[in-house]
Amino acid sequence: MRRLARLIGLFWSTAVAGEMEYRVNFALAVLSSAGGLLGALFGLSLFFGDTDRFAGWSWLQALVVLGVFTLLDGLTSTLLVPNLGRIVRHVRMGTLDFVLLKPVDAQLWLSTRDFSPWGLPDVLLGLGLVIWAGVRLSVSPTQALLALVPTVASCVILYSLWFVLATMSIWFVKIHNVTEVLKALVAAGRYPMSAYPAAYRVFFTLVVPVAFLTTVPAETFIGRGQPAWIVGSVLLALLLFAASRAFFRFALRFYTSASS
């Protein structure tokens, strides 16, 4: 475990050092994140119109959903995009060979090798928004701690979905943008599930589990969480994570490297 932590620390410090070459761009990223959040707040306010409820959620409660979404979005650009987006390149160029030969778990290496600080402003803004709304809503510390459970589950779910899609590039080298589709669908998580018509809700719960990504953690945080949904999100996270590992092993049987 210590070796693992040191390894990841090493990975990320080299990655950050590389990105620090582009400091102006980091400033741009901060600006983009702040602007993005402002725009998202504006978009959300449109749904409220001149009422104080949107699909049964008050403004502060809806901010928690948006905050969780912003946090996940930031984690996506910090870890998922740079790492998993690269799997397809490894497959096409045959460099996956080198990864498989390393004395580290290949899935771990592929998932943690890179770290892009570009998403950090979003992570911080999302966390800030959740905490700010939580204080205004006087969320108790125990509730906040309890909300960590579905939040961690939501991160694992998102990661597993990404990893399975990225793994598919072992067969279809041309589908690197399949993760863009996932990103577009996850954008539905900006709003609580109750804001959607019934057909959408079924799709975003059973087909692409967006409901578990933002709504369940936010509901738990504001004290409206139902035990069944929290347990469900943990089970789903475990299931999808196990599936992602099994799927990766299965896919590797079809990997034939660049020259063979």
Partner: peptide
């Protein structure tokens, strides 16, 4: 499909 944000918003607005 990655440009499906309008279709998602369609659902939210219709429900609203």
């Amino acid at each position: 499909l990655s440009g499906s944000l309008p279709l998602i918003l369609m659902g939210v607005w219709m429900q609203t």
